[in-house]
């Protein structure tokens, strides 16, 4: 059996509650280099929360997250839950993760090009010319080089999301996190984004994708994780999951989500 690639991301026993409601009930997940993991589940299953706990946009109440072998230091709060202990570390680790949001979240006062160079230039402190060169390369890759001087408001949803992907790529992330990247898009625009994501996967990028796109989960990812009410109900390769290995609940989930999917 060949050696598994190194673990680039690991989340152990993550618990998270919002007020009285426990959203994550002890989730553990590991991503190896080159993994493309699709996280599926109904609304409220906690999948977005899990993703956001990984780059600490939400702070897990308990549990450990490590990125590239480095564990995020936490400290205990007086009331029992935990807080990030070292803001510098968080910032550093976040700069090694790229996140693509459901609502794109491009910076509205900056052009497309400026959006993409913002991170590398101001956070990674790289030379501006080098950043611009890289940005143009990435924008070309996602097919939007000719829009580099446009502002986000002048682009369609699909275009904005592709810029957002370029922006995340510009940071040279070890792992890319996608939080329902196509959920806010009109159906005809979903395909262009999935195409870019597929090319990233084929490149060997490590990706964690929370999604409703069954086609992507089935054809592009190498692992499918199905979450239900804050726990992992079942997980496995797409062949297994979409074949016979999936649980009854998963089968029900797929059938209720049957839709005409863009060919990925």
């Amino acid at each position: 059996m060949s050696e598994l690639p190194p673990v680039t991301l690991s989340a152990s026993d993550i618990h998270k509650s919002f007020g009285a409601m426990e959203v994550l009930k002890g989730i553990s997940l590991q991503a190896h280099q080159g993994d493309v993991i699709s996280i599926l589940g109904a609304s409220g299953s906690g999948k977005s929360t899990l993703l956001r706990c990984i780059n600490l946009l939400e702070t897990p109440d308990s549990g450990v997250v490590s990125v590239g072998g480095e564990t995020i230091e936490m400290k205990r709060h007086a009331r029992g839950h935990q807080l990030a202990a070292n803001p510098r570390q968080i910032e550093r680790l976040r700069s090694r993760l790229g996140m693509v949001f459901q609502s794109f979240n491009l910076w509205s006062h900056l052009t497309v090009l400026q959006n993409v160079i913002e991170g590398p230039h101001y956070v990674l402190k790289r030379d501006k010319k080098a950043c611009i060169a890289q940005a143009e390369q990435l924008l070309d890759r996602v097919g939007l080089l000719n829009r580099k001087d446009f502002y986000p408001a002048q682009l369609s949803g699909g275009q904005q999301q592709r810029v957002a992907i370029a922006r995340a790529l510009a940071m040279d992330p070890e792992v890319m996190l996608f939080d329902e990247p196509t959920s806010a898009l009109d159906p005809e625009l979903v395909g262009e984004v999935l195409k870019v994501m597929r090319s990233l996967a084929e490149e060997g990028r490590t990706m964690l994708v929370v999604t409703h796109e069954m086609g992507f989960a089935r054809n592009v990812s190498n692992r499918v994780v199905f979450m239900h009410q804050g726990t992992i109900d079942c997980q496995g390769t797409p062949e297994a999951m979409f074949g016979d290995a999936g649980s009854a609940r998963f089968k029900q989930f797929i059938s209720s989500h049957h839709q005409v999917e863009p060919v990925v």
């Binding site: 680790l93 976040r94 609502s103 910076w107 956070v123």
Partner: peptide, 29 residues
Amino acid sequence: PPGQVEAGMACGMSRGLLLRRIIAPVMLR
């Protein structure tokens, strides 16, 4: 828009950088 602030945080921006590059410009407008 809180989403734009989150995007900044997700890039690893420090609080100072966030304020200077994202929050203040948008706020002023």
